[in-house]
């Protein structure tokens, strides 16, 4: 195989021009999907983390079981289970709903663990000081603890969000027309690898800045932990 063959197979401008509208639609869907599942997972995680502050074993143990259960199942397994399994229970779900449910369960558990660690990292004196000035438990949580908690675990939150955005690619398995799915479609009609390569490049351009940022934050964090 010559170098030209290689270029033709992976970097064909002609194929790219043909496939671009399809890829573009896929990119938009990937962004849309991210905008849906990231807040969904974050809110789920927030609920879990707030429940984690309740000092009762009747809350604590079910919570740990829930989180560990959904951290143990691979996200794709959850997704397939919801999408292909629920119809047998008489619940017909469309792809987007299945993705939303699967991601809510999976990424919610991860965001929950991160936020829990963040809340625990805020010294007890902070709540006490707030309570002393008459703030309620909820007000102290909202105005004093959560802002510090989020800031303390910001690298982990960003890192998880990056993983969630990458993870939206598994929605292709349930035929959501996101970037990877569209690229595969284009590849199968053109018999050429350029569309998949293009999808990879798009992902890289989109996410590289985040990776750079994280790499800096993480280095600083580890150095600061000594």
């Amino acid at each position: 195989m010559t170098f030209d063959d290689f270029l033709q197979a992976f970097f064909s401008v002609e194929i790219l021009q043909q496939a671009w509208p399809i890829l573009w639609a896929g990119l938009l869907n990937t962004l849309l999907l991210s905008v849906v599942v990231v807040p969904l997972g974050f809110i789920g995680g927030l609920v879990l983390a707030l429940l984690g502050t309740v000092h009762s074993r009747w809350v604590r143990w079910p919570l740990i079981a829930w989180v560990d259960l959904f951290r143990s199942l691979p996200p794709l397994v959850l997704l397939v289970f919801v999408y292909a399994g629920l119809p047998f229970a008489g619940l017909e779900v469309n792809a987007l709903t299945a993705v939303a449910i699967g991601f809510f369960l999976n990424t919610g558990a991860y965001y929950g663990e991160i936020l829990r660690a963040g809340i625990e990292s805020v010294p007890r004196g902070q709540v006490e000081a707030a309570r002393c000035t008459g703030l309620t438990t909820a007000q102290a949580m909202l105005h004093v603890v959560l802002p510090q908690a989020v800031r303390n675990v910001l690298p982990d939150l960003i890192s998880n969000t990056l993983e969630v955005v990458k993870l939206t690619s598994i929605a292709s398995v349930v035929a959501m027309p996101e970037l990877l799915f569209q690229a595969r479609q284009a590849q199968s009609v053109t018999y050429n690898a350029t569309p998949i390569m293009a999808a990879a490049v798009i992902y890289f351009i989109l996410l590289w800045p985040v990776v750079r940022l994280l790499s800096r934050l993480e280095n600083r964090q580890l150095a600061g932990r000594r």
Partner: peptide
Amino acid sequence: DLFRALPPLVIIALLYFGLPAAG
């Protein structure tokens, strides 16, 4: 950075569906 930014499934697709195009 490359392998942190790319979704694993995209890499798998590239290797499995793409490489045959390179023989």
